[in-house]
Amino acid sequence: MSIQHFRVALIPFFAAFCLPVFAHPETLVKVKDAEDQLGARVGYIELDLNSGKILESFRPEERFPMMSTFKVLLCGAVLSRVDAGQEQLGRRIHYSQNDLVKYSPVTEKHLTDGMTVRELCSAAITMSDNTAANLLLTTIGGPKELTAFLHNMGDHVTRLDRWEPELNEAIPNDERDTTMPAAMATTLRKLLTGELLTLASRQQLIDWMEADKVAGPLLRSALPAGWFIADKSGASERGSRGIIAALGPDGKPSRIVVIYTTGSQATMDERNRQIAEIGASLIKHW
């Protein structure tokens, strides 16, 4: 058993032996400061991975655009179909130039040979490839079927209504393609630790998130040596930015963190910096 498999397999085991986890309101002070700095709403939640207890939250039940963070949920739905014998990670999917949409750094290189379902999930999560996400959405029946999958998990909040890139429109008060921090954190925890997916599929999902290559300026920039993080970021119109993550010290995840912001006029660099500073406060007061 690899170190990674050891880590995921023991998450339920550690729940019975973990020390009490204490919240630190200092992080919420930073979240509120980020709102002031960005001139935008910020949603935040910090969840204990083992118990599911909410440690801190700010606007946990307000809607925010999901942006590309939905791609983790999408690959969770794909893995659920794999577990049920309805899909194979090794199945190759062929597509054409007409299928390519904006920001497809991986799929645009494989027009001649296509990509496997496994490769598409990797591209969608680690590189946020939009065509990969659309191709995967097609395999499960489209955005409405992803919403149905989430409903069956008990998440009646999170919804996907459109495809890439239209889902990134982020119109104020538009509930399409949105979630709430509390709903996203709970759903992510179920995917990573619950019985919905097999152990192998849970491991695969967290491996893809751990290999994320496009979230460096966010929480990863504040991470001390030896800490673990598996994450997925997102960005969209109207100053929207977000990240969902499982992270913790000693090389294993122990908390879920979800951060969303929307409605800012700030630059992408400034949005990144504010999220990184929230992460730094979280780690300092861990």
Rank of each mutant, 00 (worst) to 15 (best):
R238N: 15
P253G: 06
N168D: 03
V31I: 15
L218A: 02
I206G: 06
T186E: 14
E56G: 09
L146I: 06
G239F: 05
G239S: 08
Q88V: 11
A246Q: 03
G43S: 03
G216S: 09
S80V: 10
N134K: 03
P253D: 04
P20Q: 13
M184W: 03
D174H: 03
G90V: 10
T139L: 10
L79P: 00
Q4T: 14
V72A: 06
R220S: 02
V214T: 12
E61F: 14
L197G: 00
T198N: 10
D155I: 12
R91V: 03
G39C: 12
K252F: 11
C75R: 02
T147H: 05
R202K: 14
P25T: 09
P224M: 01
T112A: 13
T198L: 08
R176W: 07
L223E: 01
M115G: 00
E145L: 09
M180H: 13
K53S: 12
R255V: 03
L19H: 15
A183Q: 10
F14T: 15
I283E: 00
N130D: 02
S128D: 15
V42D: 00
V78I: 14
Q204L: 13
R159G: 00
I243K: 01
K213F: 08
P165S: 04
N50K: 13
P217H: 12
N98D: 13
N173C: 12
A225R: 13
R255E: 02
K252W: 08
E56Q: 08
L219R: 01
A246Y: 09
W163Q: 07
A77C: 13
G52C: 02
L192W: 06
K284Q: 15
D174I: 00
N152C: 11
T198Y: 06
D83H: 02
D269R: 10
A183K: 07
T158V: 00
I93T: 03
M1T: 06
T158R: 01
Q88Y: 15
D48M: 05
I125L: 13
E169D: 12
S221F: 07
K53N: 11
S254C: 10
L218N: 00
L55I: 13
A276D: 05
K284M: 09
P249A: 06
V42S: 07
T198P: 04
E164L: 03
A222G: 09
M67T: 08
L167V: 10
S254V: 11
I243G: 00
L136M: 07
L197F: 04
S254A: 13
A200W: 06
A280K: 15
P253R: 06
Y103F: 10
S236C: 06
L188E: 00
L150A: 08
V101A: 03
N130I: 00
M66F: 06
L55G: 04
L191V: 07
P181E: 00
A15G: 15
A266C: 12
W227M: 01
F22E: 12
F149I: 09
I54Y: 07
Q265H: 14
G39Y: 07
A280R: 15
S201D: 00
Y103G: 05
T179Q: 00
E108K: 10
M184T: 00
E164D: 04
Y103E: 03
A276E: 08
K232E: 01
G85C: 08
L219W: 01
K284V: 08
K232I: 00
L160Y: 00
Y103I: 05
K252P: 03
D250V: 08
L167H: 02
Q97S: 15
R202S: 12
E56P: 00
G226S: 08
A124N: 02
K190Q: 03
P172A: 11
G43C: 02
E277W: 03
Q265T: 13
C75Y: 02
V214Y: 06
R162C: 04
N152V: 11
H94F: 15
L160R: 01
G142V: 02
K144D: 12
E56L: 06
G85H: 11
